[in-house]
Design a protein around this nucleic acid. Structure first.
Ligand SMILES: [Zn+2]
Ligand SMILES: [Zn+2]
Ligand SMILES: [Zn+2]
Ligand SMILES: [Zn+2]
Lengths: 154, 154
DNA sequence: ATACAAGATGTAACTATGTAACACTGATGG
DNA sequence: CCATCAGTGTTACATAGTTACATCTTGTAT
């Protein structure tokens, strides 16, 4: 087993398909994990993925973590540090964007992925000024999304 | 026990004292945890704090987590999401700044706390535009600090 | 074909991080 | 005196992630 074709639908939170990833080098377990994350409409913890893949033969957390490690390398998946959870990248050509930000609604659980160019530029400037070389940047906003905010005031 | 005076030195990574916090409402356990974080020259996990406070009578993680929860509320301590660890706030008048960023050196473990105003403004603008109300913003740069970067190229 | 190397997988055991539940204490205000 | 509340102590539990080792698969060199 070395190279199951991974051609997987990318959905928005509403289920609308907005793109696909085609990565020729996904192995069986990587495809299973990536497929699970794409079908989910929100972030999943590694153990949640494990439970969803019991029927496919998954038995141990390491099977999930190994697949996730590769998917993170490929840029197909992001880790949400403040949730200890993982989401499929929602940007179809994501291999490019190494710095990205997330807005996480604490009411409905939806996650919006965006690229805050100005913020990243400012952070880069700060880093340059004080001699810090960033390897990975984490930006996560926890709060309430438009829908949930409106619902609360109705 | 209700109100041990907490007047505690704030040190930089080099041990230099750069300020103090005076908070009249710190309880015994809160003072012990806060003091431990201030003496440390880097972030500590909750279990590391627990081990450092065994001699003071700490026995269970909840004693640490309960103190940390309050210290986080008071703004005296920050949580580093990407490390599952905690640091004393290095900004003496920190009660004000609710949004802050960290540059974490993966070589030496030092953490620099800073306030990236322009980045925060940009993120606020993005949030406003898409109806998201942020309650807490996490910004963490993982990389290499000036000293460690220079050491690597020497 | 045979042999080897690299990558992928399976499994058990373990460490690390964080919580729930319940009991107890000491202060505060009727 | 009694109710209440915040803080504390302790046990057990739940969640998250890793180490170690064996096996299997596939590509490649001989
Ligand atoms: Zn992405
Ligand atoms: Zn929402
Ligand atoms: Zn601070
Ligand atoms: Zn360093």
């Amino acid at each position: 087993m070395a190279g199951v074709e991974g051609h997987i639908r990318i959905r928005q939170g509403d289920g609308r398909i907005v793109g696909t990833h085609s990565h020729p080098e996904l192995t069986k377990n990587q495809s299973l994990v990536f497929g699970t994350l794409n079908r989910a409409d929100g972030p999943l913890t590694a153990y949640a993925i494990l439970d969803l893949l019991r029927d496919e033969g998954f038995r141990a957390p390491l099977q999930v973590y190994r697949a996730l490690e590769k998917l993170l390398d490929f840029g197909l998946v992001h880790r949400l540090e403040s949730l200890n959870a993982f989401v499929a990248c929602s940007h179809p050509g994501c291999s490019q964007h190494h710095a990205v930000a997330f807005a996480i609604c604490e009411t409905c659980g939806n996650v919006l992925e965006f690229t805050p160019d100005a913020a990243l530029k400012d952070l880069s400037k700060w880093a340059g000024d004080c001699g810090f070389s960033p390897a990975k940047t984490t930006i996560e906003l926890r709060g309430t999304c438009r829908g949930c905010g409106q619902a609360a005031t109705n």
